[in-house]
């Protein structure tokens, strides 16, 4: 993840949160790693949210394959107060929108669609950059981990 794209992603999420009147907008990768979020995250355990979302999407993906579908690109969970809208972006990241009755499913779907297109572009850009970097990595030294020593690792477990 690069600074510039990270900023673009944050901006898109922020816009989506405002435009859709949502409480929280959240981006996770398919492995359950949180990428970025926007909104009031104080009462939410972000790491658990990320992991359970990914588990949920993975399970639904499995269901889709079982019945011969490629994927279910949108999941929607309706609660008494809050609802969760989950959608796949560029087939690799998961966009989560949490909203209550100040918004509506229709509005969220509409705004998510627009934001997804923006995010797709950013991820395409990211992919290109990462590939270009990989090509250049052969003669350029840029991994901060190439020099990790055993002591560095041991010190993590020192307590």
């Amino acid at each position: 993840m690069y600074e510039e794209e990270y900023r673009q992603i944050k901006e898109t999420l922020q816009r989506l949160q405002v435009d859709s009147n949502a409480k929280i907008v959240f981006l996770v990768d398919k492995n359950g790693q949180q990428i970025a979020s926007h909104g009031d995250m104080r009462d939410v355990d972000a790491t658990s949210l990320a992991s359970l979302t990914a588990g949920n999407v993975a399970a639904t993906d499995g269901l889709a394959k079982l019945i011969g579908e490629k994927e279910f690109s949108i999941l929607f969970h309706e609660g008494e107060r809050d609802n969760i809208h989950i959608s796949l972006v560029a087939q690799r990241v998961i966009l989560v929108v949490i909203f209550d009755d100040r918004s509506s499913l229709g509005l969220v779907r509409l705004r998510v669609k627009k934001a997804s297109q923006e995010l797709e572009r950013v991820f395409e850009q990211l992919l290109k950059k990462a590939e270009a970097d990989r090509g250049a990595a052969a003669n350029r030294f840029d991994s901060p981990f190439a020099e990790i020593t055993d002591e560095d690792i041991d010190s993590l477990f020192s307590e």
Binding site: T47, S48, G55
Partner: peptide
Amino acid sequence: LFFDFLPLDLGQVRGFKTRFH
């Protein structure tokens, strides 16, 4: 039934926060 999950922060390596899931 599906999984157990525990996120763990181990500290820093070369200025990077290491998180194990």
